[in-house]
Amino acid sequence: MRYRKLDANGDYTFGHQQADFLRDSPETVAQAVSTRLKLDQGEWFLDKTEGMPWKTQVLGERTTATRDSAVQKRVLGTQGVTQIASYESEFDSETRKFTPTVTIDTTYGQTTISENL
């Protein structure tokens, strides 16, 4: 599995040839999970059904029952993820920040992802 690295601002890195890519590591899969979680459903012009249903299943009204399962489904659908070892989430209703923390087993080892979304 090969994935282009992101810099501190979340932009693709360029100009360093092969050093601009992650390869066959837990970090590679973690970045894939992170970018898949950040893609809003309908945002990708080639497939409007692709992405996280943030407005309807995660951050919308009365989504307590669906938010964690929507995130877990998206994580498990990522290439290289074999299973979720542990999962926790926190939702701050005042700031509307949702923070899932997921430890995943990948084909390359175990890693943890924690995102403020």
Score class of each variant (00 low, 15 high):
T64Y: 11
A65W: 05
R36N: 15
Q110G: 01
S89W: 03
K48Q: 14
K55Q: 13
Q18T: 09
T101D: 06
P26L: 10
I113Y: 07
K48L: 15
Y87T: 00
R23C: 06
G109W: 02
F91I: 09
V102N: 02
A8H: 08
E61H: 13
Y12M: 03
R67A: 08
A32N: 05
T49Q: 13
Q57L: 14
R36S: 15
T107H: 04
Q18L: 12
T35R: 13
I84L: 02
L46V: 05
Q41A: 11
Y87W: 04
S34Y: 12
G15Y: 03
Y12S: 02
A70V: 01
P26A: 08
E61G: 12
G51F: 08
D11P: 00
S69E: 09
N116G: 07
V81N: 04
D68S: 13
S93K: 04
G60T: 12
S86D: 10
S89D: 10
E27A: 15
G10N: 07
S114D: 04
D92K: 02
Y108D: 15
E61V: 10
T78R: 04
S93H: 06
V29F: 05
S25T: 15
I84G: 03
P100I: 01
L76Y: 02
T35E: 14
P53N: 10
D105T: 15
L39P: 08
L37H: 03
G80T: 06
E94W: 05
T111Q: 06
D68K: 11
E90F: 09
T56D: 15
A19S: 11
I84R: 04
K5E: 05
R4M: 10
